[in-house]
């Protein structure tokens, strides 16, 4: 089954909506709590990244019998050095974003930690595409 959401850059009040909806569906499918938690954490981090850095984005989710695949795509500044961004603590978040309690540089590392597969494609000035896969036990 498929789910689709849009994310508005800069709107922190709505960050967390897609992850909550996905969680609700996974609970109804009786996926085990730990797997759901990993997926929700990874997706929430991805959402916050879009909100904090990009102008707008979409979350597209496909749930199959044994796995969930999530694509988060945005139109935004892109990531210049993905390897560097994957390091814990590295952040390009603005002062305003940090003051709101975000931008600690843990976004991508947390996504890596909580997914079975993570692919990131990015083009500076155009946007970023993230694909995350989690398998159900």
């Amino acid at each position: 089954m498929k789910l689709l959401f849009t994310i508005q850059g800069g709107d922190f009040t709505r960050a967390g909506h897609p992850s909550s909806e996905v969680k609700k569906v996974l609970k109804q499918l009786d996926i085990d709590g730990k797997t759901i938690k990993n997926i929700v954490i990874a997706l929430y981090e991805a959402e916050v990244n879009v909100v904090a850095h990009a102008w707008k984005g979409t979350v597209s989710v496909e749930i199959e019998e044994n796995k969930i695949t999530i694509w988060v795509s945005d139109e935004g500044p892109g990531i210049a050095d993905i390897e560097l961004a994957m390091q814990a603590g590295y952040s390009t978040a603005s002062k305003e974003v940090r003051e709101m309690g975000f931008g600690a540089g843990m976004g991508l590392p947390n996504m890596k930690k909580n997914t079975d597969e993570l692919h990131i494609e990015s083009e500076v000035g155009i946007g970023t595409k993230v694909k995350m896969v989690n398998y159900f036990s």
């Binding site: 089954m1 609700k24 569906v25 609970k27 109804q28 499918l29 009786d30 709590g33 749930i63 019998e65 159900f136």
Partner: peptide
């Protein structure tokens, strides 16, 4: 735990139901 909001144990059937509900 006593989960209340599950759509049945068969995941494929449950997904089919949820897609229809959507």
């Amino acid at each position: 735990p006593k989960p209340l909001f599950i759509f049945g144990k068969d995941r494929v059937k449950a997904m089919d139901k949820m897609t229809r509900a959507q």
